[in-house]
């Protein structure tokens, strides 16, 4: 079955295959899927899990704004963005962005724009659970040690 394109926050595992299928179209010659996944090592420190918190109403509004901006800049046929909240283990998918466009460079550019801006403006936060048992919110620019985790391209 074909799902409608979606923008949502969820506490459930992200069905990125369904999300990808939902943006496919006979008008599109290119479909790009980006997945963010929980990484074990950040500058030599070992992560055992991440906890994601979000401000759902504002986050979904910001995601819709980003989709609208992407549509104004590229010939996006369909776009879907799903971000997971709650407790995630290593390798789990935290975010999925799927975009379809007539041509591949448009789909890559629009997809990159969506994930890059998501990380800058959408009110969602991650908390590191380090292997030494400590926990730490990642808040870029506030001088937290975990700052470094998101500064690597």
């Amino acid at each position: 079955m074909k799902f409608s394109p979606m923008i949502q926050l969820t506490h459930e595992p992200i069905d990125f295959a369904a999300l990808t299928e939902s943006v496919r179209s006979t008008q599109a010659g290119a479909v790009v899927l980006f997945l963010g996944t929980v990484r074990e090592l950040t500058h030599g420190r070992q992560t055992v899990a991440l906890d994601y918190d979000g401000y759902p109403e504002m986050a979904e509004a910001k995601l819709r704004e980003l989709e609208a901006e992407a549509r104004s800049r590229w010939p996006v046929i369909e776009a879907g963005i799903v971000h997971r909240l709650g407790h995630l283990e290593l390798g789990d998918v935290s975010v999925a962005v799927a975009v379809s466009c007539p041509h591949r460079h448009q789909a890559f550019d629009a997809g990159r724009f969506l994930i890059d801006r998501l990380k800058e403006v959408v009110p969602i936060w991650k908390k590191e659970n380090w292997s030494d048992g400590s926990t730490e919110w990642v808040h870029p620019g506030t001088g937290d040690v975990a700052d470094l985790s998101d500064r690597t391209p």
């Binding site: 979000g54 969602i124 991650k126 870029p140």
Partner: peptide, 10 residues
């Protein structure tokens, strides 16, 4: 109204 630190989703 809401108040929060810099975001770190993704």
């Amino acid at each position: 109204l809401a108040v929060f630190p810099p975001v770190s989703g993704g």
